[in-house]
């Protein structure tokens, strides 16, 4: 079927199979940041935004993006790099495989929650798994990043 979407700011019109996953579509269109960590909706590594809302691309029905906008890490490079620097600074990036999905979720959280408490951050990020870090370093990176953003606002 024919779908029209805006991917990272660029219009795209493509003939796609009805049952392809959004994840495969994105990777085939050059967004290699999008990872399939599990394919069973558990890990959050495949997180992208549809109209600014974070969703799992491993299960989002591809035809439904017709007429909607999709954003991957490639579409928010500057912001991702800014937060990524805090992650690197705290040793929150080990193998790095989980980072794109994690960063997309953190940036979505930043837009959605005002001054979140640690408990709210944990709840928002509960769907992002990481096999390497143990999460403490990630929490430190988020805290410092949000504090800095708050100061410059």
């Amino acid at each position: 079927m024919l779908i029209t979407t805006v991917l990272n700011g660029k219009s795209l019109r493509q003939e796609v199979p009805a049952d392809k996953t959004l994840l495969d579509f994105l990777r085939e269109n050059g967004c290699l940041s999008v990872k399939r960590g599990c394919g069973t909706e558990n890990c959050g590594l495949c997180t992208v935004w549809v109209d600014g809302t974070p969703v799992l691309s491993c299960s989002y029905p591809l035809p439904r993006i017709d007429g909607h906008e999709v954003t991957t890490l490639e579409g928010v490079r500057e912001e991702a790099a800014a937060f990524g620097a805090y992650m690197a600074g705290e040793g929150a990036e080990q193998c790095g495989y989980c980072s794109p999905g994690f960063i997309m979720t953190v940036l979505a959280m930043e837009r959605e929650l005002r001054n979140p408490a640690e408990e709210e951050i944990n709840a928002y990020l509960a769907g992002c798994l990481c096999r390497c870090t143990g999460y403490s370093s990630q929490m430190r990176a988020i805290r410092k990043y949000l504090e800095k953003r708050h100061e410059t606002d």
């Binding site: 299960s59 959280m109 769907g127």
Partner: peptide, 9 residues
């Protein structure tokens, strides 16, 4: 239930 990205679906 699972994560925010799942509950958005």
């Amino acid at each position: 239930i699972a994560g925010v990205q799942f509950r958005n679906l």
